[in-house]
Computed example of a mutant assay.
Amino acid sequence: MANSKRDLFQKRRQRVRNKLRKVNAGRIRMSVHRSNKNISVQLIDDVAGKTLAAASTLEKDLGVVGKNNVEAASKVGAAIAERAKKAGVEECYFDRGGFLFHGGVKALADAAREGGLKF
């Protein structure tokens, strides 16, 4: 195999991110990272280079420490929507990275939309 799985993932992540940047210049980016055990999300202002809000299954107050399933992703999505409102963010764009938009990533996005975020 010419490319490793990691190399292919990085290429896919950059391809997705570059396409999104062209269309959504100046907007806040909602970046998702998923591992086998956890899922996390950040609202990033790329212009200022700062993270405005973040949520993860590693936080004890969400009650899903160490879980990466659809239920845990929904709780993280609801938490990021609430924190986004506190930070004054109503609209962003969804950067799924190199991950497929189904399962936990989709559940996180749906919960964030229900919480009031527009993307």
Rank of each mutant, 00 (worst) to 15 (best):
M1N: 02
M1L: 11
N3W: 05
N3H: 03
S4H: 10
L8Q: 15
L8I: 13
K11D: 05
R13Q: 12
N18E: 10
N18P: 03
K19S: 03
A25K: 14
A25G: 12
R27M: 12
R27F: 09
R29P: 08
M30C: 09
M30W: 02
S31K: 08
H33S: 05
N36C: 03
K37C: 03
K37N: 11
N38L: 08
I39M: 04
I44P: 08
V47M: 03
G49M: 07
G49H: 09
L52I: 11
L52Q: 00
A54P: 13
A54Y: 05
S56M: 07
E59H: 08
E59Q: 12
K60A: 09
D61V: 06
L62M: 05
L62W: 00
V64R: 00
V65N: 06
N68W: 05
V70H: 00
A72L: 00
A78C: 01
A78K: 14
A79Q: 13
A79K: 13
R83C: 06
A84C: 10
K86V: 15
A87V: 05
A87T: 10
E91V: 15
D95P: 06
G97D: 00
G98Q: 09
L100N: 01
G104A: 10
K106R: 11
A107F: 14
L108E: 11
A109T: 01
G115C: 07
G116Q: 04
L117R: 06
K118P: 00
